[in-house]
């Protein structure tokens, strides 16, 4: 069982988390024309990298949505950080 670091709660077992999406995609502006290809790529095209992958995960108990970098081969977690722009106290 893997352990992931929630930026809010710290290290927790993987079953407390849900995978959300690969990081780095931006939703096309749908008020403008969006081509079929562009929409398909946004919805379905995944990089599925062998190695380092940047992903959006959700920690279910606290509902924090965060960015995690991990290696899909070694299962090593490289970093995790909150999505919000900056943390204002």
């Amino acid at each position: 069982m893997q352990r992931f670091p929630c930026p809010f709660c710290g290290l927790r077992d993987e079953r407390e988390f849900h995978f959300s999406a690969e990081a780095g995609k931006t939703r096309p502006d749908t008020t403008q024309d969006v081509s079929e290809t562009e929409w398909r790529d946004y919805l379905y095209a995944q990089a599925n990298p062998v190695g380092v992958s940047e992903e959006i995960w959700v920690h279910i108990p606290c509902r924090e949505v965060f960015l995690m970098k991990r290696n899909t081969v070694t299962m090593e977690v490289l970093s995790s950080r909150a999505l919000r722009k900056e943390h204002t106290p």
Binding site: S20, A21, V58, I60, R63, E64, V65, L83, R84, K85
Partner: peptide, 16 residues
């Protein structure tokens, strides 16, 4: 639905 709302709230909006 709560998950869906939280996902869009935090990923793509200003959660504050």
């Amino acid at each position: 639905v709560v998950s869906l709302l939280e996902n869009w709230r935090q990923d793509g909006n200003d959660p504050d």
